[in-house]
C-alpha cells in the first residue's frame, strides 16, 4: 500500500480551506440498543468536546458499533438523550459522517462519484464537487483511481475512499467504526498516520471505535471504555516515539485491566 506518510507533505495548488468547527456530542443517561434486541448498553453518560478525538475501546459485542450508530442518528436511544451541541439528535445528518466498518461505497458509482456524493447531496455544482473530490482523493493517495469502480480497488484503498467520501462532506463530526479493522498491519499503520494528518487539520470532532488498544492510545485524545463508559485521558505528545514511554505503557496496561 502506498499510504502517504504525511498527507500534507506534497505541495498543493489549492490551500486547504479552513475546516468547519467541530460538533460537541453528548450522551445523557442513554440506553443504547435495538428495541427488543439483545442486552442494551448503558445507560451511558459521555461528552465529546468539539474537535476532540475520542477512541472507543471494548471487547467484541460490547456495543461499540451501537454507540456510533446512535451518535450518527441511525438508531434512536432506548431511553435518555443524544445531543449535538446541546440539541437532541433526531436522525442522521450530513454534520455527522459515518465511516463504516465494512465497505459502504456504492459499487455502481466510480470512486470519484462516490466521493462527490455528499457534495451532490449538499447541492454543490458539478465542477465544484469534481474539484473537491479529486482533491480529497489526492489527499488519501488515490488520485489515479478516480475513474475506477470500487470493486477494482483493494480493501485498504476502499477504506481510504470511504474516508475521503466522509470528509469531503465537511462534517462537523466523523464517526469511524473500526475503519482499519480488516487491514494488514503495514497498511494499518499508514492509514493511522494518514488519518492523524488529515484529522488534526480538519477541526472535526472524531469518535473512533477500535478493538486495538495501541491504536486507541496512538490516535485518541481520550479513550472511552465500553461497556463501563469509563473515560481515560491520554498523555501528550502521542507520536510514535512516545509508544515506549512509561506513561503510555501504564495507560495501555490500565486500558487492558479495565476491559
Amino acid at each position: 500500500m502506498s499510504v502517504p506518510k504525511s498527507p500534507a507533505a506534497p505541495p498543493r495548488t489549492t490551500p486547504r480551506p479552513a475546516g468547519p468547527e467541530g460538533a460537541e456530542l453528548a450522551l445523557e443517561g442513554a440506553l443504547l440498543g435495538h428495541p427488543g434486541g439483545a442486552a442494551p448498553v448503558g445507560p451511558l453518560d459521555l461528552r465529546v468536546a468539539a474537535g476532540e478525538v475520542l477512541a472507543v475501546v471494548g471487547p467484541s459485542g460490547c456495543g461499540k458499533t451501537t454507540l456510533l450508530r446512535t451518535l450518527a442518528g441511525l438508531l434512536p436511544p432506548l431511553s435518555g438523550r443524544v445531543l449535538r451541541d446541546g440539541v437532541p439528535v433526531r436522525g442522521p445528518g450530513a454534520d455527522r459522517a459515518l465511516v463504516f466498518q465494512h465497505d459502504a461505497l456504492l459499487p455502481w458509482r466510480s470512486v470519484r462519484a462516490n466521493v462527490e456524493l455528499p457534495l451532490a447531496i449538499r447541492g454543490v455544482d458539478r465542477a465544484g464537487r469534481r474539484r473537491a473530490a479529486e482533491e480529497w482523493l489526492d489527499r488519501v493517495g488515490l488520485a489515479g483511481h478516480a475513474a475506477a469502480w470500487p470493486h477494482r480497488l483493494s480493501g485498504g484503498q476502499r477504506q481510504r475512499v470511504q474516508l475521503a467520501r466522509a470528509l469531503a462532506g465537511r462534517p462537523r463530526a466523523v464517526l469511524m467504526d473500526e475503519p482499519f479493522g480488516a487491514l494488514d498491519a503495514h497498511t494499518r499503520t499508514g492509514m493511522q498516520d494518514l488519518l492523524t494528518g488529515i484529522l488534526r487539520g480538519s477541526g472535526a470532532t472524531v469518535v473512533f471505535v477500535t478493538h486495538d488498544v495501541d491504536e486507541a492510545v496512538h490516535l485518541g485524545d481520550r479513550i472511552a471504555l465500553l461497556p463501563s463508559g469509563r473515560v481515560l485521558d491520554v498523555p501528550r505528545p502521542r507520536d510514535r516515539a512516545a509508544h515506549g514511554a512509561p506513561e503510555t505503557r501504564a495507560l495501555r496496561r490500565l486500558v487492558l485491566d479495565s476491559l
Partner: peptide, 23 residues
C-alpha cells in the same frame, strides 16, 4: 485489482486481495 499507484520511491506495497465473494 488495479495495482496501487505507488509514488516513486515508495516501498513495494503488500498486495491486499479483494474479497471476491463479498464484492
Amino acid at each position: 485489482p488495479v495495482p496501487d499507484a505507488a509514488p516513486p520511491g515508495a516501498p513495494a506495497p503488500r498486495p491486499v486481495p479483494v474479497p471476491e465473494a463479498k464484492a
